[in-house]
C-alpha cells in the first residue's frame, strides 16, 4: 500500500486561553480529499494554517512526503525549505480571492507566477501553459490578459485553483473555498475540483462548514469542536451514522435544511 502524503500525530497549536487545536491525528493519501468541519471558532482554520506551516505548532508532528519520496518534518522545517515546498509541492486556496490572487496583475500573470518562481523564463511557454490552465478551470483563454477584478466570484475561485495547480502540487489546502459563492456557482466549482483531484491525484485538505460539499468531495472527514477532533472517519459514515453529540447536532441541523 502506498505511503501517506501527510501523517499528522499529536499536533497542537495552543493560543494559551484554551483556543487553538489539540491532539490532532490523521493520515492523508494521494487522491484523497479530507474535509474539516465544525462551527466557527472550533479551530478548523487554525489547524489548516498550522498544517500549512503558516502558524508554528506547539506540539506534535506533521510529516510530509514529497514527490521524490523523501519525508519532511514540517513542524521543525527551516523556513527556506518550507517556502520551497509551499511553492512547488503545496497549494493554498483561500476563501477570499483577494487573499490568494494578485488582483492588480492579469490572470495569465497570476497563473504563471509559481512557474516563474520555479525558474521558467520563456514568456511564450508560460503564456500557453497559463491559457491551458484557464481552460481547465473553464475560463476562456480570451480572458488571459484580464485582471481578476474583472472576474466574477466563481471565476476568481477557479483562477485560484489554476494558479495553485499549475505547478502540479501534491497537496492543496483550501479554506472555505466555496464560502462566498452562489449555490449554482458552487456546484460548478465543486465538480471541477472533483475532476481535477481525480485527474491529477492531488490530496486536498479543505476547511468547510458545508456538509453538502463534504458529502460530494471528501472521502474523509474530521469533525472539530472546541479545538479538538471529536469524530474522524469516512465521510459517509460520519454523515450517516454520526457518533458524537456534536456531529449528530451538525448533521441533523444541516441535512434537514
Amino acid at each position: 500500500m502506498s505511503q501517506p502524503v501527510l501523517s499528522v500525530s499529536g499536533l497542537a497549536k495552543d493560543y494559551g486561553n484554551g483556543q487553538g487545536c489539540f491532539d490532532i491525528d490523521f493520515e492523508l493519501y494521494e487522491g484523497e480529499v479530507l474535509c474539516i468541519v465544525g462551527e466557527s471558532g472550533s479551530g478548523k482554520s487554525t489547524l489548516l494554517s498550522t498544517l500549512a506551516g503558516r502558524l508554528s505548532a506547539d506540539a506534535g508532528s506533521v510529516r510530509f512526503r514529497d514527490r521524490a519520496g523523501s519525508s519532511h518534518e514540517l513542524t521543525t522545517l527551516a523556513e527556506a525549505e518550507r517556502r520551497r515546498l509551499a511553492r512547488s509541492e503545496w497549494g493554498f486556496v483561500t476563501q477570499h480571492a483577494r487573499d490568494g490572487l494578485r488582483m492588480n496583475v492579469s490572470a495569465g500573470a497570476n497563473v504563471s507566477e509559481r512557474l516563474m518562481a520555479l525558474g521558467q523564463r520563456h514568456y511564450g511557454q508560460l503564456r500557453e501553459t497559463a491559457a491551458q490552465w484557464l481552460e481547465k478551470v473553464e475560463i476562456s483563454r480570451e480572458r488571459l490578459d484580464d485582471r481578476p477584478t474583472a472576474f466574477s466570484g466563481g471565476m476568481q475561485q477557479r483562477l485560484q485553483i489554476a494558479r495553485n495547480l499549475v505547478t502540479q502540487p501534491r497537496l492543496v489546502f483550501m479554506d472555505e473555498p466555496t464560502g462566498g459563492l452562489d449555490v449554482s456557482v458552487q456546484a460548478r466549482f465543486l465538480d471541477l475540483l472533483r475532476r481535477l483531484v481525480h485527474d491529477t491525484g492531488i490530496a486536498v485538505i479543505m476547511v468547510t462548514h458545508d456538509l453538502g460539499v463534504t458529502r460530494l468531495l471528501a472521502q474523509r472527514t474530521l469533525v472539530m469542536q472546541q479545538g479538538r477532533v471529536v469524530e474522524a472517519g469516512l465521510t459517509d459514515q460520519i454523515l450517516d451514522d454520526p457518533q458524537h453529540p456534536y456531529s449528530q447536532l451538525l448533521v441533523s441541523s444541516i441535512l434537514q435544511a
Binding site: 517556502r83 496583475v105 507566477e113 509559481r114 516563474m116 518562481a117
Partner: peptide, 10 residues
C-alpha cells in the same frame, strides 16, 4: 524568491 519580479515583466 524572485518569481514576483518576473510577474511585472510578464
Amino acid at each position: 524568491e524572485y518569481g514576483l519580479m518576473h510577474v511585472k515583466l510578464y
